[in-house]
Design a protein around this nucleic acid. Sequence first.
DNA 1: GGGCGTTAGTGAGGTAGCGAACAGAACCTA
DNA 2: TAGGTTCTGTTCGCTACCTCACTAACGCCC
Lengths: 272, 272
Amino acid sequence: MSILHSPKQNQIISALPVHKYTRLLPFLELRDLSVGEVIYEPNITISYVYFPTTCILARTYQLESGLWRQVSMIGNEGVTGTSLLLGCDSTPATVIVQSPGYAYRIKASILKKELKPGGTLQRLLLHFTQALLLQTEQSAVEHRQPIINQLCRFLLMTDDRSPGSSFPLTHELVGNMLGVRRESVTTAALTLQAEGAIAYRRGHMTVINRKLMEDRVSEAYIGLKNEYHRLLSNKSEAETENQCEANPMSFGSIKTRSPSTEAANGRNLWGA
Amino acid sequence: MSILHSPKQNQIISALPVHKYTRLLPFLELRDLSVGEVIYEPNITISYVYFPTTCILARTYQLESGLWRQVSMIGNEGVTGTSLLLGCDSTPATVIVQSPGYAYRIKASILKKELKPGGTLQRLLLHFTQALLLQTEQSAVEHRQPIINQLCRFLLMTDDRSPGSSFPLTHELVGNMLGVRRESVTTAALTLQAEGAIAYRRGHMTVINRKLMEDRVSEAYIGLKNEYHRLLSNKSEAETENQCEANPMSFGSIKTRSPSTEAANGRNLWGA
DNA sequence: GGGCGTTAGTGAGGTAGCGAACAGAACCTA
DNA sequence: TAGGTTCTGTTCGCTACCTCACTAACGCCC
């Protein structure tokens, strides 16, 4: 387990040029976030921007049925509050902690001051905005897919953003994220477990065989996934073009689609 | 019917300061687009950016089942190709013409040159990007709603972006956009017609009573709709702040949620 | 180590939407 | 006016998911 924390565990921060990083560092505040914690409430002015390192945040909407539906997921590859960039101080979504862990946060007012038009920071954030849009489009496309397929995508995405291949997750929570009943999640999870794709025990789920799950998610997802990956890797490009010092260690840490045989367990930036 | 065409029928263009508008004008090319025409293919470099005036464009994904699913809709309030702004020259979505009509297009290379960081044009486009993200989130939230409700949202959105309250639309096309069977659309449409919410004849649909349909779409939609509206109206704000000459006629033309009794038929910029 | 709250598994009955297949109605063209 | 094409309406069996209701296991805490 990582005991040491650094803002560089977040890919956007780690892609910043040194001088920028140094400027921001004193304003970055480490936060320990627990499941279900509300980060942003709908239509309330954003006061902090969060850079997840080990936690996963979810943009969600509450339906009148009382169910929730997650529309996108933000891990260490991203940041919350991109709407600030787009000229809007709040969003109608609720952002909550989906997976516990750490994030660095910074006052929105400070970040805004540091956001020079055309600068590296802005460019990185815009890139992530595009990635977020694609991810949201994935959610929209998933429409009316069988629950088990949705569960696969959800778990793959969670896995992509988790330090290990095992993470705290109850069926209830997954149901909320997918906007389906808990029992349906249980049924789907049982099937996946029987197939050897996942394992779980009370409150924890483990991805065992990514390949099996990737077969279940739509082709469109895979395409989008690659695109997403490409987009975020591109950051380095934007960087050098701007003569900033890149941190090569930081790129491509999103677990890649298992292209070959040893597909099963994804490795991660900070080791499994 | 409007016989005269002007780029100012597009809200983004009409919100540009005069000098910018004058600069762009010679590069704007009027296009007559017919239903089903493909504007962007997935992962092909974008060569033109389209500003719809009377047509409606749709961002869609093809599912392996052969069905399509629309994730967002762009009318005269917006523009295609916002990804250029976000540092990406292509997108994995297919953009097609959902409703026939006109759009002005401009070479992507020219637009990029005109896009000064921090400028009005960039600001307007970023605003629209945020609106597009919200709209896509709506699609994602719609997940597992009954088809009739989805149909309502679709028709309301189409109505929002159409000059009149009647538009060319087959059940088949709607089915493709929603990712459901044509027969299911027919069934839902019959119900709505019986309720007096819509009327239709072979290939044409007419919105008769918006209020009835708004009651069917989720509260979340209404909230998002207002937000969307607010966002796009905000453009004027960004403008004045930047001392550009605004064109007041151009704002708030998205049909507002019928707040009062005479809800039924929305009026529109260019008259019904 | 026994109790209790939380999490997971099961089952019966209902329903919305699907797949497939076909009938009829509107429009087009010649 | 005839004949073809494109749209819309309808039917039937099937499946996935839902609602509701309940039981069973885990594991934390006193």
